[in-house]
Amino acid sequence: MSNSKINYILGIADNALILGQRLSELCGHGPSLETDIATTNIALDLLGQTRSYYQYAAELQGGEATEDTLAFLRKEREYKNVLLVEQPNTDFGYVMARQYMFDVFHLLLLEQLQNSNDEVLAAIAKKSIKEVSYHKRFSGDWIKRLGDGTEESHNRMQEAFDNLWTFTNELFLMTADDTAMVEAGVGVDVAALKAAWTQEITALLTEATLTVPDLKYFLKGGKEGIHSEHMGFILTEMQYMQRTYPNMTW
């Protein structure tokens, strides 16, 4: 029971951490000053949310666990984030497509999680909703501008959705821990969010003159710790300081 809860919290937190890490790679490298500031601000919000979840998970786990050991000392297979958030910043179209698809899911999830019978999770969700609504507004605006922009921006935006679409179905797959936490009144039934997600994405893509990809086969694995080839590189960069100088602090 309590292990399920820890795993469940880590699943939500790892999505925020890894996406935050991806976005922070753009710090100083954004395509313009405004988008650079925006992506790093979003990264900061996600990192803040991650800290709240990790602090709670560490408290439940007890012993030597802290937010830092959870972030920096787990191995690749122990991370439960979805494959979507670990995909690279191929270009700004990919960054915004990844962001928007995650933001829509994230907001739907948090809107349910704020009713959790776990008070800490409900509080983190309530706090995060305000931030994530703002993220979605930003990413959604860019999808529209680029999709309904020039021929070049339209094609690249479409390409990003076409290539990232295969990672979207995993968002709605239930793990054993998800099921246990839904039954306990703690967690959210993510499978039930798919219809609303699809509807919202379809509406925005249509407005952006883009086509919703039609795919029959989807990739999965991240939630069970089976990640894409990108994950190792992300962790190498993120963890190297703790790995090189174990237990170092500022």
């Binding site: 000053l33 405004e34 500031i37 925006a38 979003i42 919000d45 703002y134």
Partner: peptide
Amino acid sequence: VSQFGSTACKAL
């Protein structure tokens, strides 16, 4: 100018 600003709480 920008929906996000110099800190999380501000826009430019």
